[in-house]
Design a protein around this nucleic acid. Structure first.
Lengths: 128, 128
DNA sequence: ACGTTGTTTCGACAACTGTCAACCTAGACG
DNA sequence: CGTCTAGGTTGACAGTTGTCGAAACAACGT
């Protein structure tokens, strides 16, 4: 299990590193790529992308697993597995309150990813 | 329409579909998720993320494979494979000019991904 | 036409991922 | 304490992915 890489990335991502100018502005260093790629990978599955959206768009900013699971035709363990992937990628946080577990989005990383993908509009439709 | 994930997604993504409000604004429909996830997946590899960045940040907006390959300690076929993945995800375009093949970023999809990840800052409440 | 150089495709293999069934843990309720 | 329900973990399996070497394809120089 070489999943220590994941946790390490998490640590770094949680820091206030101003690590990520837009991808199109300057070449992403290998170190940054290694940190951000797992987050993109986590979003690279339709189920997880929907889960992420359901969590991030929840009215109270958090979603109960009991609401997430029935939204898919997948078994509980499978949903749990996907949620774990999102957790390990640093995209969501989980909290148990009584019987239920609630998931909450981590806007920091999400915002960082968005920044990385940002394209600076040249102001014109096309260059040449 | 048959939903052949790969090529169909490409077609749709190339169109001017206003498909993607921020992920945190409203729940991403399964259809949209199926369209966007492959793009995130393509960026979910450190090598491809760097390739994407090298292409997108290239001075002339395009990068030659002959410049990309030596930037990694990977074989030519492997780099070519990653580039193909980016191509199939609709993130880049390839064009052969004489001996060399040049890759160019497709800002449309990149911008759409960024929009999808955009978080509306809570402190930035629109007054009125 | 031929050989040289650059790039992609093919074939193969190890590693990883998505999925489920079965089991285990945490809290609620009697 | 015992039992029920909600979730998470483990183990196993098929399918996919990352990687390479070898071969095929494309364009240039001679």
């Amino acid at each position: 299990m070489t999943k220590q890489a994941g946790s390490l990335a998490l640590t770094d991502l949680n820091a206030e590193t101003p690590c990520c100018p837009p991808l199109a502005r300057q070449r992403v260093p290998a170190e940054t790529a290694a940190m951000m790629a797992p987050a993109f990978k986590a979003l690279g599955d339709p189920v997880r992308l929907q889960l992420m959206s359901m969590i991030a768009s929840a009215p109270d900013g958090e979603a109960c697993v009991c609401d997430l699971t029935p939204a898919f035709e997948l078994s509980g363990p499978t949903i749990s597995h996907h949620l774990k992937t999102l957790r390990e990628a640093g995209l969501v946080d989980a909290e148990r309150r009584g019987t239920w577990v609630y998931y909450r989005a981590r806007p920091d990383l999400l915002r960082r990813l968005a920044t990385l993908l940002t394209i600076e509009t040249p102001g014109e439709t096309r260059t040449g």
